[in-house]
Write a protein that binds this DNA or RNA. Structure first.
Lengths: 83, 83
DNA sequence: ACAATTTATGATCCAGGGGTCATATACGAT
DNA sequence: ATCGTATATGACCCCTGGATCATAAATTGT
């Protein structure tokens, strides 16, 4: 699944979905990423203001990757997902 | 151009490149994104700790988009770029 | 319904980000 | 080399994210 991320809420969804897909609890993800469970909770719920590094830590632990590219003009390339 | 972003430095490169591609100065980007020129400078140079929202503002102003997806196992999908 | 586990909330403390201004340094053109 | 513009740096303050601990609320399994 490919997530378009424009807001913290989007990011939260993407992360929660990836975590669930791997059957991890927030606490487990916490210990593998070094990010506190409480913080993960906030992030998954889209509370803004998160620091980039924290996101990178989670992304890495979940074996996801972030890409930045020109806004696709409706290419609808792969199946996308936006909330 | 599609940028794989794993670190703040990567992000900085992607943003600077996109800005240059649009022939914008940091100051111009600043006024169109609401992010201070000084801050843009820091971000482009990969100084970590940036807040997500700040990144979103820049990405939007530069008409870029961020996607999160499973780590591609060497798919080498489109032409990528990693620093 | 109950117990166990998972997630959310709340408070405190501290370090660092970003707004803001001033200035230094780098870069380009002539 | 000089002028003008662009980018980087430094200092200040305020505000908030995240570490941390305790606990509440929600979810899940039986």
């Amino acid at each position: 699944m490919k997530h378009l991320v424009r807001t913290s809420k989007n990011l939260g969804h993407a992360i929660r979905q990836a975590r669930k897909a791997k059957n991890l609890t927030q606490k487990e993800l916490a210990s593998m990423s070094g990010v506190w469970q409480e913080t993960i909770s906030k992030i998954e719920n889209g509370s803004g203001g998160t620091k980039l590094e924290t996101v990178f830590d989670l992304i890495a632990a979940l074996e996801l990757e972030i890409t930045v590219a020109e806004r696709s003009k409706g290419t609808s390339d792969g199946l996308e997902d936006i909330f």
